[in-house]
Structure formats: C-alpha cells, structure tokens
Simulated scan of single mutants.
Amino acid sequence: MGLTVISFILGTTAELIKIAPVYHGIAERGVRPKIWFTAQHVDEVADALADLNLPEPDVWLVPKDQARNLESPAQVPGWGAQVLRTAWSRRHELRAALAEDGRPPLVLVHGDTFTTPYGSLIGKRILKARVGHIEAGQRSGSIMSPLPEELNRKLTAKIADLHFAPTELEVGNLRHARGVVVNTEANTAIDAMRLAINQPLDVPDLPEKFGLATLHRFELLSRPDKYREALEILREQSREMPILYMAGAPEREKIRSLGLDHLFDDRFIVRPKMRYLKFLPLVARAEYVVTDSGGLAAECYYLGLPCAVHRERTETPQHLGETVVLTEMRADKLQDFLATYPNRRGESWMDKYHPADIVVNSLAQLGYC
C-alpha cells in the first residue's frame, strides 16, 4: 500500500515561506506533497518558489493566466467565487490525485489568510479529505481586530481535523476543537528563518545604522488618521537615525491618495518590498522594527530584536514583553518604544525550536508520511 497523498492549499508568499520547511520535511520522508495555489499573491510567487526550492504549483485554483494580486477587500468575493468554482469543476481530478491509497487523504492549510478557511472548506466539503491547520489556535480575542484574520482562524478551527498550535497558549485556545491538537512549540517561521538569515545582504546605499518599518494591514490603511499619525511619528524619529519603510503597491497608493509623499526623504526612506530571503538579512541588521505584521513580530521575537507591533490587538500575546511591544495603535506608546528601544534587545531563540520537525513527525505517527 502506498503512502497517503498530502496537498497544501496556499495562496500567499508568506504561506509558501512558512510551509517550505514542512514541505521539505515531508518530501524527505518519501512523499511528494502537492501545492494547490489560490493566487492571493501572484507577482512574487515565482521568486519565492525559486528562493525556497519549491516546485511550481501543481494546480492553480485561479487559472494562472487570470491570476492577479488580491489587493483590496472588494476583490475578495469574486476571487473566492473563482477559487470555489475551479475546485468544484475539477473535484474529480483533485479527489483522484488525493486517492492513491486507501487511507484518508490530507489537505494542509496555514495561518489566517482568506485562503485558510477557503482551503479548509475545499478540503473537507469538496474533496472529502481530512484537513490539517498549521499555525492554529492564535486568537486576539476580538472578531473585529484584526479583521478578517481572527474570523478566518475561528472558521478554520471549526473545519480542521488536525491542529498544529505554536505554543501551549494556542493549545489552550483549541481545548474545545475536535480532532488532534499538537503543540509545535514555536511558529514554523523560525525554521524558514534559518533558510534566509545568513543570505548575503545586497541593499544599495544602506545606512550604517537604521530602523525598519512595515505598515501594510487593512486594519491600519483603512484608518487614514492612524496611518498618517504613524508615518508622521516615524518621520520625526528618522531625524535621529534613518528609517527604511518597506512599502508594497497598496501602501504606496495610499500614501499618494492621502498626499503624504512629502514625509519621505533621504532620512525617512521608502523602499519597495523585498523577497523574503533578501528581506530577512536586512531585518537582522536593523536596530529596531515597527510593524503591523504578526509574522514579522514573531521573527523579531525569535531574533531578540526590539519590535513595536502597531496594532490594537495581537493574536500572539506570548511574544510580548520587553523586546516586542504592542502599541494598541496609540501614538504615545509608539513614541515610548522609539525612545526606549536601545534597552529592549533580548536573547535569540534561533537554535532552540524546530517546529517543522514536530509537524512532520506527528504526520508520520498518524500514518501520513
């Protein structure tokens, strides 16, 4: 009897990054996992696949010639309908791909993007597979913050059969979930970081010392007063030390529409977003980070790098402390962090945790690889 086929349903470059160590761990066990891609992100996918030594997706759930970056909530209904329509129309082919032996097939999803509940729903209802959720159980405690991530997680928890939770806190959040809950001890981001952290740093005109900022979430960009306030604070701080603001297309468009271009100069420097294997060595060189990305906040925690999480709530409170600070989107808390960051550097956890190994070993014990 052959081994069960495992498919990842993914849609973003961040998901590709965080499942890469799991994918390779499964492949080392003799199983060739499949990647079925929903195309939330498109522009950087080829580069991410090459950097992470991952193959081209086996299936595009939005046809590749029609795929475009999902950049606003208004695009979600049409995109979601296309994903479900493709999965339904190709259901016999996808079921056959998962049915190479008599054991229940498995679909794995990751995190809290729109793809997470959609992939879970496709796996369970359309493909009749078991569903495993990696990075499960994170909760902020408010369905509205962050929106839609908190809702995506809670919906996925109702569907999944296997829950891979980063710490005991998330295990506790899943105490009422059905199925198997596994504590992976950390986020698989730490394994992905090991792939990237020592890559060469190729950034022209990089200041000797600098702060780093990424502010991109809908929760912030949809509130012009808060977005403007944060940028103005960073602009003021950049008079003391240069700050690199890594901005994607939606942020640059928001800056233009709000008339905030004048805030940027040779001290408060706006740069395009970078590929992960290029970006993480830059993070490691920064003096501090200001972000609204939960993933980047976790990476700063593992590195011991001072980080301000500019959000009202976080789904990973276990990372908070002296090194990682939640600003609650308040100006005074952000300013306090910027005044005190030199004293906030913590210890690195890079050599302590290996969550991808725990995921793969658990799947092996359950007979999947």
Rank of each mutant, 00 (worst) to 15 (best):
M1C: 11
V5N: 10
S7H: 02
L16K: 00
P33L: 10
K34L: 13
K34W: 00
A39N: 09
L49M: 05
L52W: 01
E56S: 10
P57R: 01
W60P: 00
L61W: 10
V62W: 06
Q66H: 08
A67I: 06
R68V: 12
N69C: 01
V76R: 02
G78P: 00
V83F: 01
L94Y: 07
A97R: 04
E100P: 00
R103L: 09
P105C: 12
V107D: 08
V107N: 10
V109T: 07
H110C: 06
T115M: 04
G119F: 06
G119T: 09
S120T: 13
I122W: 05
I126L: 15
I126F: 15
K128L: 13
R130C: 08
G132R: 08
I134K: 02
E135C: 09
R139Y: 00
G141F: 01
M144C: 05
M144N: 06
M144S: 07
L147T: 06
P148W: 05
P148I: 08
L151R: 03
N152E: 08
N152W: 11
T156M: 05
I159F: 03
H163T: 13
A165Q: 12
E168I: 02
N173T: 07
V180I: 15
V181T: 15
V182E: 12
T188I: 05
A189Y: 02
M193H: 02
A196N: 08
I197D: 08
P200F: 03
V203R: 00
D205G: 13
P207T: 12
F210T: 07
F210C: 12
L220Y: 03
R223V: 07
P224S: 01
R228P: 04
E229D: 06
I233R: 03
Y245C: 11
A249E: 15
E251Y: 00
R252E: 09
K254A: 12
G259N: 08
L260S: 03
F264K: 05
D265S: 07
I269V: 14
F279V: 01
L280W: 05
V283M: 15
A284Q: 13
R285D: 11
A286V: 06
V290A: 09
G295T: 14
L296R: 10
A298H: 02
A298D: 06
C300I: 07
Y302N: 13
Y302I: 09
P306C: 04
A308P: 11
R313E: 13
E315H: 04
T316W: 15
Q318S: 14
H319N: 14
T323G: 13
T323Y: 01
M329C: 09
R330K: 15
K333L: 13
K333A: 15
P342V: 13
G346N: 12
E347L: 08
E347T: 14
E347M: 12
W349V: 09
H354I: 08
A356N: 03
I358E: 08
V359I: 12
S362V: 06
C369H: 05
